Simulated assay, not measured.
Amino acid sequence: MTASWLTPWRLRVYPRLLLAAMGLALLFVLCTGSGARVVSGRLGGDFAEFYAAGRIVLAGQAERLYDPAVQRAAECDLMPDAAGDVFVPFAYPPQFALPYALLAALPYRPAFAAHLAVMAGLLFLAVRIVCRDLPWATPYTAAVVCAAILFYPLLRALLGGQNTPLTLCLFAAAWSFERRGRMVAAGLCLAALCFKPQLGLGLLALYALAGRTRMALFACLGLAVLLAGATAFFGPSWPAAWLGYADWVVRTSLGMEGEMAVSFPGVARHLLAAWPRAGLAAGLGAACAVLACLGVVFWRRRGRSLDLPCLGLAAAGLLLAAPHAYFYDAGLLVFPALALLDARLPHAASLVCGLWLAGLAQIFAPHLGLSPLFPAALALFGLCLALVAAPRRIRP
């Protein structure tokens, strides 16, 4: 029944119609309300922090980017229903604020629309990059894109102004360029990915362990150029200001992570909140175990191809080991899901549907007391590990 209903024509046409319908619905939302306010509440969610960072740079206050009072003042009109002292802190490396200075030159609403369009395009590009190496998926790229957009973490990232699609695209591009021998481009993608150091530096280390020395070298050179540019623009004191502010943000958010956390450190701190030291030790211990496992796997791949299961394993593992990862970061689980489908694991489609439902169940996470995406990420990590360790016994 299902196979006869999901014909190739429908898999090509229906997703395009659904994407068009979602685009029209979003256009309607953008045309209602004014400023940061829409009929459903506040427009853009976390986009306010990025837009405010762009405002700060555009106003010539780049050296005060990590002053909480300056960030709060830059966001005051972007929080229509919040108290005056509420703001979303910008704790990314300073160079990440520069593109948002261009958006800050626009009114908030057009800026959010432009950001959403760029992120949607990056999500499409990430899926297309991976699907072009999967003969079974290439004709149905639109269907895969549609499924990815409707995956709750990615949907929330898009509508909430987050940058998970950029992370996905850089992951996919670095993997694809390396497989085609384009080490300069692959290394530069890793350097750009370091806007999230816990992911970019982690992936760089894994490729270095796998013997991709030229790729790692170009990544380090690209990162050095970015850091030098940040020093020239934001002043020599930015590393201390950024690290101090990021540490304050992480420590402040510890009590608010709760059911949003999807990494071992965040989940352990939440579940063992009554014993903070035990929670910290348990979370860091589990994260170190995951990183050690990743290191061994990639070390053993020296001189061998890093296929899609390796990409899926890295995405799931780095997500689990990150000191700070929220549910919208679980959009990275698209890679291990595609790896399972490509490997034709028994019941692979059911497993991927289970992941999609786990994403949807995030809506009920406050009542569950835990993000359902955490066990989903853990399961996908184990399955990709099995694929990498024993591909011949698992694949038909």
Rank of each mutant, 00 (worst) to 15 (best):
R132N: 08
G121Y: 07
D81S: 13
Q95K: 00
T141E: 15
L123W: 11
L123N: 11
V127T: 10
P107V: 10
T141V: 15
T141M: 13
A148F: 05
A113T: 04
V127W: 01
A105S: 13
A111K: 06
D77Y: 03
M119K: 04
G84D: 12
L125A: 14
T138I: 02
E75N: 05
A104P: 03
L103T: 03
A142F: 06
P93W: 00
P139R: 09
A91T: 00
V130Y: 02
Y108N: 03
D85S: 14
Y100D: 00
D81Q: 13
Y140S: 07
L122K: 08
V130F: 03
M79T: 11
A82D: 14
L103H: 04
Y108D: 01
L116N: 01
V88P: 00
F96V: 05
L102D: 00
A91E: 06
M79S: 12
V118E: 02
R109E: 07
V127C: 14
Y140P: 04
L123T: 12
A148Q: 03
C146G: 01
L123A: 12
Y140L: 11
A104S: 11
F124M: 10
H115T: 06
V145R: 05
M119D: 07
D85H: 14
L125K: 11
G84H: 05
L122W: 10
A91G: 10
A143H: 12
P135R: 09
A91M: 03
A101D: 06
L102A: 15
F124T: 15
D77T: 14
A126V: 13
Y92M: 09
L134Q: 14
V118N: 01
F124I: 12
D77R: 13
